[in-house]
């Protein structure tokens, strides 16, 4: 699975990114294959979120290349709006539009960015809401929903764009513990449906469950990567060991 592989869904090639003097991504190279689910773990500030934001061009990079479906999206003249329509991202804080109903939150992108007809967008949205048990929330405003419901709506909003790839940025970190499961179930369902996903998460048992591969990021670099069983049961890198010990001590694994 070399990162030179042309068939990769997402490919990072020696990506550097710094905020002022702080190096956040320090030469990241990786490749994610279609239908693969990859989890990024690591301490806060290790670069997980920034990595996802760079793939969606919310953040620019300083050097290196990012390719999505073989196309270099960090090239100069690329149309960022076109790229973003192919990549769904779900944020830690949901970021639903509070002045729109659930339905309008979901149809806004397809109608205004993809140019779908309203009828088509409504049909897609209705189907997705049904599938994720949110049909009765169609006409509610986001502030009337629980955190878990809001996050599920945010996931549906991304899915309505029919993305090739989904980026999930610590999507359960802002949720009360009892609401985490409903969101994780949705993600499991997406994985079962073959969605290519890059997931930054603090939920170690979830990462172990769902990931095909786990990347442990440390100080902006990939300290270790491998199958989840290997990472979680037989970590090789001392920083990985240290990190997992702390997680276990905190009762989070």
């Amino acid at each position: 699975m070399s990162f030179k592989d042309r068939a990769a869904a997402v490919e990072l090639d020696d990506v550097h990114k710094s905020f002022g003097p702080i190096m956040v991504l320090n030469g990241i190279s990786l490749a994610v294959m279609p239908h693969e689910v990859v989890c990024f773990i690591g301490a806060s500030g290790s670069g997980k979120s920034t990595l996802l934001k760079c793939v969606n061009l919310i953040e620019g990079i300083d050097s290196g290349r990012i390719l999505v479906g073989g196309e270099e999206i960090t090239a100069r003249a690329v149309d960022v709006n076109r790229i973003r329509r192919r990549i769904g991202i779900v944020f830690q804080a949901f970021n639903l539009f509070p002045h729109m109903t659930v339905l309008r939150n979901i149809t806004l992108g397809p109608v205004e960015a993809l140019g779908q007809s309203r009828a088509e967008a409504l049909e897609v949205a209705g189907g997705l809401l049904e599938r994720f048990g949110l049909a009765d929330k169609t006409n509610e405003y986001p502030d009337r929903l629980s955190g878990g419901q809001q996050q599920r709506v945010a996931i549906v909003r991304s899915l309505a764009m029919k993305p090739d790839i989904m980026l999930l940025d610590e999507v359960t970190s802002a949720l009360d513990p009892e609401l985490v499961a409903e969101v994780l179930n949705v993600i499991h369902e997406l994985a079962a449906g073959g969605m290519t996903m890059l997931i930054a998460t603090h939920e170690m048992s979830f990462a172990r469950d769902i990931a095909d591969r786990v990347y442990f990021l440390d100080d902006g670099g990939i300290a270790e990567q491998g199958a989840p069983d290997q990472i979680f049961t037989a970590p090789r890198h001392p920083r990985t060991k240290q990190f997992l010990q702390r997680i276990i001590a905190a009762g989070r694994l």
């Binding site: 969606n56 919310i58 709006n81 076109r82 790229i83 973003r84 329509r85 990549i87 769904g88 991202i89 944020f91 804080a93 970021n95 639903l96 539009f97 806004l108 992108g109 205004e112 960015a113 993809l114 909003r157 991304s158 764009m161």
Partner: peptide, 13 residues
Amino acid sequence: DSQVAAARALGLS
């Protein structure tokens, strides 16, 4: 800003 980020992430101009 997160509202703008969410809208731009959907590919809105």
